[in-house]
Computed example of a mutant assay.
Amino acid sequence: MFTSCREENKTPEEKIEETMDEMQDDIDEASDDVKDAMEDVEDEIKEVKEESKEEVEEMTDEQ
């Protein structure tokens, strides 16, 4: 008995649905990446605020 390596024949509707599913996965992945980047930026902003606040306090303490 021989088996084929070919992909099974799909209807145009199945191909469209598969493509849409793949695109949705890509969109979800990109959305997660954007969320992660936004969280990183928020953390950086908080860190810079804290450092700036400490610097200002040090400067005012010196006077």
Rank of each mutant, 00 (worst) to 15 (best):
T19R: 13
V34L: 10
T11P: 01
A30N: 11
V56L: 13
K46D: 15
V56E: 09
E47W: 01
A37T: 06
D25H: 06
M1C: 11
V56F: 07
M1V: 14
T19S: 14
E7A: 14
M59V: 13
E55F: 11
I27G: 01
Q63P: 06
D36R: 09
M1G: 15
R6Q: 12
I16M: 09
D28L: 04
E29W: 04
E50V: 05
E42K: 08
D61A: 14
P12I: 03
S52G: 15
P12R: 00
R6S: 13
Q63H: 09
E8P: 07
V56D: 05
D21P: 00
A37I: 04
R6K: 13
E54R: 08
D32F: 07
E54K: 13
K15Q: 06
P12L: 06
T60E: 09
D32V: 03
S31L: 08
K10F: 02
E57G: 00
E51K: 12
K10D: 02
E14D: 06
D32Q: 15
E51G: 06
E54N: 12
V41E: 08
E17N: 14
Q24W: 01
K49A: 07
M38A: 13
D43A: 13
D40K: 07
E13R: 05
M1Q: 12
T60D: 02
E50D: 14
V34E: 10
